[in-house]
Structure formats: structure tokens, C-alpha cells
């Protein structure tokens, strides 16, 4: 049996076999809880671009709610990572679902060598394109899956030639020990980590965002909790 980590939950899949987003043969792990704040004003670049050329995107767009604002789903858009002091091995294979005009998650941060599986969860084709290495263009039929592995550190962007709202970022970082996606309800997130010192960092739109938390120590016994929230606003305040 293979377990594929999917957008903050763990699901079973027949082909891949790894534990949650933690390296194999890890020692006893401890839960580290935290929370992000300051994400209310974040707007994905693809949505901002669409607003800059309205004539190309719609005929009518009229505010209806009393306080219209961008409905950011942090569970899809923001990826929080715990970076170890030393390089980490590849993480569990990760599944990215393509559906609903975007991918789930939109931003993913993993260590190089982590296998990524893109699955078309829509009942119609998608055409993911990327300038990254080891990726060739091919139509993904409904239910189809494509795998790709980032070989080296860097940011890889994936777009869908059929759906312009789809823009996905896979960031390969050397020392990623674990990643998590905050809750849409309150921005909380949970890491499962071996004891040690970490830096907790958030990524949005393929780029680091906010002020990272450094010297975060995971004790031998848990659970542990971050003393302060991770601020992810653009100005870091």
C-alpha cells in the first residue's frame, strides 16, 4: 500500500508507499502546532493579473456583498514548511489534484527528489505546461495522472493551457523536513517532526512570504506549539 499525502490530509493510493510528509526511518516524532496570521490581504498573482485587463475576462463584475474581498483559501494557496538545519531526504510522494480551475494545493514546497503526482480530477481534459526540466507537454484526460520529480532546488511553475486560472508552483528546498497547509477556519497548521531545531517558513505563489520563525525547537516529547504566530502578510507585520 502507498500513502499519498494530499492537501493536508492523508489518503491511500495503490501505487505509492510512503508515510506522511516525513522522511522514512525517522525517529519518534512530535506534533508542532502553529498558526498563520496576516493572510487576509494576499491575492494570488493570477487573479491580480485578471483584474488588470478586465475586458479580456468578463462583461459584468459588480460588487454585491457589503464588504467584497478576495476569498483566499489558505489551505490551497499557502504552504508552511519546517526547514531543518541540515539537508533532508526526499519526502513522501505528494498528490496535486487538478480541478475547479486551479490545483490543490497551489503552492507546494518539498525537498528535491520528492515525487509529485498530478491528477486530473475533472471530467474533462487538462493541459499542464511548464518550462521546468523533465516535463513534456501532454494532454491529461479525465482521471489521468502524471508524475514528475524536482531534481534540484528551485521553483517550477505549471500552467494549464486550457484554463488560465490554473497556476501551480512547486518549490524544491534542500532542508524541508515537513510541510503543512493551514486551516481555512483559523489558519492553524500542524507539523509532525522529529525533535530538533527548525525554521518555519510560509510560501505563497511560489515565493516565501512574511517573516520566517527561526530557532524553533521541537522537544523530545510533545506536543509542542509555536510561541508566536507566523506572520504571512506581504509587509511581514
Amino acid at each position: 500500500m502507498t500513502r499519498i499525502r494530499v492537501a493536508g490530509a492523508v489518503r491511500l493510493a495503490p501505487a505509492l508507499c510512503l508515510a506522511s510528509g516525513v522522511a522514512l526511518a525517522a525517529p519518534a516524532t512530535v506534533q508542532l502546532k502553529g498558526r498563520i496570521v496576516g493572510y487576509e490581504k494576499l491575492v494570488p498573482e493570477v487573479n491580480a493579473e485578471a483584474q488588470r485587463s478586465p475586458q479580456a475576462w468578463y462583461s459584468w463584475r459588480i460588487p454585491w456583498a457589503l464588504r467584497a474581498r478576495f476569498p483566499l483559501l489558505v489551505s490551497r494557496e499557502i504552504c508552511v514548511v519546517a526547514l531543518a538545519a541540515t539537508a533532508t531526504p526526499a519526502l513522501d510522494p505528494v498528490l496535486i489534484k487538478v480541478t475547479g480551475g486551479r490545483t490543490n494545493p497551489v503552492t507546494l514546497v518539498v525537498s528535491p527528489g520528492t515525487r509529485i503526482a498530478f491528477k486530473n480530477a475533472d471530467p474533462f481534459p487538462h493541459d499542464l505546461t511548464s518550462g521546468t526540466a523533465n516535463w513534456s507537454r501532454a494532454i491529461m484526460q479525465a482521471g489521468g495522472t502524471r508524475e514528475w520529480t524536482p531534481a534540484a532546488p528551485g521553483v517550477s511553475e505549471f500552467r494549464d493551457d486550457l484554463f488560465p486560472s490554473v497556476r501551480t508552483f512547486v518549490v524544491a528546498e534542500k532542508n524541508v523536513a515537513a510541510f503543512a497547509f493551514p486551516s481555512d477556519k483559523d489558519g492553524s497548521f500542524v507539523f509532525t517532526l522529529p525533535p530538533g531545531d527548525y525554521t518555519v517558513k510560509a510560501y505563497f505563489g511560489g515565493n516565501p512570504v512574511g517573516r520566517p520563525l527561526t530557532n524553533v525547537t521541537v522537544p523530545q516529547r510533545g506536543p509542542a506549539e509555536l510561541k508566536e504566530p507566523l506572520v504571512v502578510s506581504a509587509d511581514g507585520k
Binding site: 487573479n47 468578463y58 459584468w60 459588480i62 460588487p63 454585491w64 456583498a65 457589503l66 467584497a68 490545483t103
Partner: peptide
């Protein structure tokens, strides 16, 4: 939820 129109509707726009 990722389509621009749905994002806008969820953000309070028709």
C-alpha cells in the same frame, strides 16, 4: 472554486 468567476462570486461580486 478556482475559476475567476467563482472566486469573484465567493468574494462578493456578481
Amino acid at each position: 472554486g478556482g475559476y475567476f468567476a467563482v472566486v469573484d462570486a465567493l468574494g462578493g461580486f456578481e
